[in-house]
Design a protein around this nucleic acid. Sequence first.
RNA 1: GGCCCUAUCGUCUAACGGUUAGGACAUCGGCUUUUCAAGCCGGUAAUCCGGGUUCGAUUCCCGGUAGGGUCACCA
Length: 427
Amino acid sequence: MAYKVVTRFAPSPTGFLHVGGVRTALFAWLWARKNKGTFILRIEDTDKKREVEGSVDHIVGSLKWLGIDWDEGPDIGGKNAPYKQSERLDSYKKYANILVEKGLAYADPYSPEELQNFRKKAEEEKKPFLFRDHRPENPAIWDDTKPLRLKTSPKRYKWHDVVRGELEAGPEVVDDFILIKSDGYPTYNFAHIIDDLLMNVTHIFRADEFISSTPNYLALYEALEIEHPEFVTLPPILGEAGTKKLGKRDGAKDILDYEKEGYLAEAMLNFLAFIGWNPGSGDNREILTKDEIINSFSLEHIQKAGARFNEEKLDWINKEHIKLLSPDIIEKNILDVIGEKYKKLVHLIADRIMTWNDAKKMVESGELDFFFDAQKVDKEKLNYKGCSRDKTLEHLKNIVKILENISDWNTENIKIEVMAYADKSEK
RNA sequence: GGCCCUAUCGUCUAACGGUUAGGACAUCGGCUUUUCAAGCCGGUAAUCCGGGUUCGAUUCCCGGUAGGGUCACCA
């Protein structure tokens, strides 16, 4: 192979990372690792208003938890430093000026209000709004205080997407989009293309909401007279119940919440890899280690259609990964979750191949507390924390089982009483 | 609404013109278990609809339908 694969993950620091973002990072990372290429972490912090403090640390922490490592990034530097777009403004300005000199970019003279009116008018006339219909005849010199727009020449664009195949869109979607905002920061649309160029990115992995803006990007690549990287469009991840893309508002959790809930990083990695990808061609394995995933990863088996997020499957994958661990590690992890207070129960829980989160649920529901009080149960009021009688009975049966496994506890009395109660109620 | 994308069991998917349409999760049943799980065995369950192309379409083409995405000085 003559060229080196370079991929990147380029999140904006606007909060936590959820499964959607992480899956994008994962696929880009897998492709880089599969090809012994380079994986870059780049922070797209060009929107000061939306920036959330601590996001970068959170993003770094999330990726590190999963074992997704990068060769270049804001924390470790690299030959393409810096890796925060806010520190790369000179590069954007340089390319902006090239476009201005070529006559392919111009200052936008309108105020936001004026722009709003154009949109409103277009809407009233039931016509699509296009900025290029309002191009100024003699644009002022771009002086950094006005937005800079790309001067596009509308036409039909066709392009190749590694996953979707041949795509195309008509001239009506091509418009003079903003390259540099009035605050001096570039838009994502401009900045990512310059950075990908300068960093020699070979494959752009991103979700499918970017398909519709691709013609505009192509217009920019053309204006700059540069080749575009390969486009690898990932299918959307749908919410558990709905048919809409999983987003923060419909329950997409912080990826680190899964760590807190007791999911193993490698199980999460396995799960995420299988959202919109599979080894294909008769390879029915679904439980794979990190290295196995890297080895079998290929772009041909990335799905086109959206996939629903399924937490039940995640639970199963997690359980299977737990089974792959050594007993020592299992017990240590269970102890981490349930705490020192319940140390005596570690073996029992491990024997039952409980997942960490099952153990955690037992702690939270008070089931383990009840166990410690079991010898004080009032047989006349077999009432466990507001549970129904059947539920209580179930708990008691469980406890008898647990008690039996601990030799130094005197369990005979309560066992007899509980079993007698059980016999009676079963009739 | 314009433009674009997508479409196999409930869910995730295999199939790259010829299979009794395979697997996994979930579900149901059985075995095992002093309870509950786990484990093992088995069952139910799918090619969106309509036209083509072809000896033969899940697969290729066209149309419809449905779902989704996008139309920002957000990414």
